[in-house]
Simulated scan of single mutants.
Amino acid sequence: MITVALVDDHEIVRRGVADLLESSDDIQVVAEASTLAQGLARIAATRPDVALLDLRLPDGSGIDLCREILSRMPEVRCVILTAYDDDDAVVAAVVAGASGYLLKDVRGPSLVEAVVAVASGKSLLHPAATRRVSERVRSESVDDPRFGSLNIRERQILNLITEGLTNRQIGERLGLKEKTVKNYASNMLRKLGLERRTQAAVYGRDHGQGSTT
């Protein structure tokens, strides 16, 4: 059972999303909140697998909440779910460590699939948002020497993270222990100056990773 927390200041939207998610036998909504402070408290109390966060809240932003959640509960997977198609917000969400950024025009079945994917360890961004983030990163990182600093194994790890694989799945693919994969991933993130796998996935897509094994 995948547990989910919803933080959105519009009750009708929140209830609609909750009803949609709970139509799946695999998902249970364990917490709801309408503000950043309330959301942080309820997420801390329930420790859900996934937190769906509205971008704009009465006392802050979903991105601020995402950053705070991950600093205290790094095991929680955060997804920004918003009506606002904003380049700067997408980049900020990635930097904050969000596992996804979805627009509220996403179809119901696709939202359920997204929650399941994120809960399994995959990183997910709206396709249009991914393109714009990649274009922005590309314009800022032409001939980035950081990528050249990665050894072959670290590039393999980056490639598979970009595909959305977890450490365990990467280990199975490459014949490595999960702890070894984690060490390679940590070194790769350090060399790239990144903090989270979501950032690495966006960086990897920009450098043509994720399409080969």
Results as ranks from 00 to 15, higher is better:
Ala31Gln: 04
Ala200Glu: 01
Ala129Ile: 04
Arg131Asn: 12
Lys191Gln: 08
Asp88Glu: 15
Ile170Phe: 04
Val13Ser: 04
Val181Met: 07
Gln28Ala: 13
Thr82Ser: 15
Gly60Asn: 11
Tyr184Cys: 00
His10Glu: 10
Arg77Tyr: 10
Val13Ala: 10
Ala41Asn: 04
Glu75His: 13
Leu20Arg: 07
Lys191Ser: 02
Leu52Ser: 04
Ser211Arg: 13
Tyr184Ser: 00
Asp144Met: 01
Val118Tyr: 02
Arg196Ser: 12
Leu176Arg: 05
Asp9Ile: 02
Ala83Asp: 01
Leu65Ala: 15
Arg173Ile: 08
Val7Met: 03
Asp206Asn: 05
Tyr184His: 14
Gly175Trp: 13
Ser134Asn: 06
Asp87Asn: 14
Arg168Ser: 12
Ala45Pro: 10
Ala93Ile: 10
Ala117Thr: 12
Thr46Glu: 12
Lys182Trp: 02
Gly121Glu: 04
Gln209Asn: 07
Pro127Ser: 01
Ala89Phe: 06
Gly60Tyr: 08
Ala5Leu: 09
Ser34Ala: 14
Tyr84Ala: 13
Ala119Phe: 05
Arg77Phe: 12
Leu194Gln: 00
Asp87Ser: 11
Lys191Ala: 08
Asp54Lys: 08
Arg72Val: 12
His207Val: 02
Ser24Lys: 05
Arg190Glu: 08
Gly193Val: 08
Thr166Leu: 06
Ala98Val: 05
Val95Met: 07
Glu140Met: 14
Gln156Val: 01
Asp19Pro: 00
Asn159Lys: 03
Asp64Phe: 03
Thr198Phe: 00
Leu150Pro: 01
